[in-house]
Amino acid sequence: MIRIVLADDQALLRAGLRSVLSAEEDLTVVGEASDGAEAARMAQVLDADIVLMDIQMPSVDGIEGVRRIASGGVRAKALMLTMFDLDEYLYSALRAGASGFLLKSAQPEEIVRAVRDVHEGELLFSPTVTRRLVEAYVRTPPPSDGVPPALESLTERELDVVSGIARGLSNAEIGAELFLGETTVKAHVSHILGKLALRDRVQVVVLAYESGFVGRQ
């Protein structure tokens, strides 16, 4: 059972989301919040798996909410709700620790799949979208030759996997490229997340660009 907290200042939006999610058997909405502080608190108290968080909310906004979740040792993953994929706050949310975003204009099937995917730890949206988003907002130093200090603790194999993730490849695709099995790739990914203290693949993409390991095209 995936436990979900909804955070949006528009009550009707929450109601609609609740209806969509409740229709699924493996999903349950355990709480609703109308600002970031409440969302973080609920996520902790109610031991939520996923928080669907609107970005713009009065008093404490979604970005701050994500920050509190990420820093407070709360295990819930944050999925940002937004109207437009070019939202300038979206990137800040990713950097703050969000695991992906979901358009409010999505169909019910997409919404449900997104929640399940982020729960699994899969990269949520198309590689192009991630890259475009990261490229639009990241202020990278030009790609250095060699390994940036942020990624020093990784082995060479792990660095190859990071490169694959940054390009938006799935585990299977990375495996095909590096001649590894999918399970091996998954193991590498967990090691990487562990070594770099990151929550999920999206954070890996962000770090890869920010550290200059991957340059802009």
Binding site: Q10, L12, L13, A15, G16, L17, R18, S19, V20, A23, Q56, M83, F84, K104, S105, Q107, P108, I111
Partner: peptide, 21 residues
């Protein structure tokens, strides 16, 4: 953004709910 987009988004979400329900 405030006036229009949130409204449209909420309407679409309610449409989702209607479809599901």
């Amino acid at each position: 953004h405030d006036a229009a987009s949130h409204a449209v988004g909420t309407m679409m979400m309610q449409a989702n709910a209607a479809r599901v329900l």
